[in-house]
């Protein structure tokens, strides 16, 4: 038992991982940082766009065809751009926002822009599923549009919003793996630039295992929370 936990055991099966321990700590932190910050910003942005899409849609509580049409098309366009291309294409914009187009912080901008439209669609789908009749009942007792958004739509869709947030965060973790292309670092970068390029397979595998572990934790926590809030 003690031999399994001994460091020379790990050195024997994953020699490069042990040697690059600091790199792993650094890149894991980068992945978490990119996921958290861009997830938070994209979450707020996506939630806003999703809500606006629902209320301005035909038959919505604040129906507005031009707004809906423009947002809808924008979301479609940004969702269609492959992320690896988006990283490069928006570099000037990135420089404008964070002052640099290289590095972990620079990766936040494309990550946010890549993720927000995806999340907006997810939010839209969750809110559209709130029964039209419930909205009508709220209007009938004199609720204002803002009250309907906050006290009915977001409240009634909460379990679905949690589930779609989990899906979004997991896909965002996937996107962070590409951030290495613009020097963003992270576990994906470690797997490719060290593990793959130097034929150090144990590094690639370890990077994958850590990402899987993060995804697993997010999924389990999200499911638990969603189940607790769901009373349907």
């Amino acid at each position: 038992m003690t031999t399994i936990l001994a460091s020379d055991f790990w050195s024997s099966i994953m020699p490069n991982v042990v040697e690059n321990k600091d790199v792993f700590i650094q890149s894991t932190w980068e992945t978490i940082y990119m996921t958290l910050v861009s997830g938070l910003v994209a979450g707020i942005l996506g939630m806003l766009i999703g809500v606006v899409l629902v209320v301005t849609a035909p038959g919505g509580i604040l129906e507005n065809k031009p707004t809906y049409w423009i947002l809808d098309k924008l979301v479609n366009i940004f969702r269609s751009i492959p992320f690896i291309i988006l990283l490069a294409v928006i570099a000037p914009f990135t420089r404008l926002v964070v002052g640099t187009s290289i590095g972990t912080t620079a990766a936040l901008v494309p990550l946010t822009i890549g993720c927000a439209p995806f999340y907006a669609r997810q939010v839209q789908n969750a809110l559209v599923d709130v029964d039209r009749g419930i909205i009508e009942a709220a209007q009938a007792v004199g609720a204002s549009p803002l009250q309907i958004i906050f006290r009915v739509y977001l409240r009634e869709a909460l379990p679905d919003l949690i589930r779609t947030s989990v899906v979004t965060i997991i896909s965002l973790i996937g996107l962070t793996a590409m951030a290495g292309a613009i020097g963003g670092g992270g576990l994906g970068n470690t797997a490719i630039s060290i593990g793959y390029n130097r034929f150090e397979n144990d590094i690639t595998i370890m990077a994958m295992i850590i990402i899987l572990a993060i995804v697993f934790v997010v999924q389990v926590l999200g499911d638990l929370w969603a189940r607790r809030t769901d009373h349907r």
Partner: peptide, 27 residues
């Protein structure tokens, strides 16, 4: 003007008490 519906239209994620409370939260 109160209104009731064929499919009740209660909020599923709120308790019975909170459903009845809802109109009183609005102003």
């Amino acid at each position: 003007i109160g209104m009731i519906f064929q499919h009740f239209n209660l909020m599923n994620e709120r308790t019975i008490g909170d459903n009845v409370l809802f109109p009183l939260l609005l102003g």
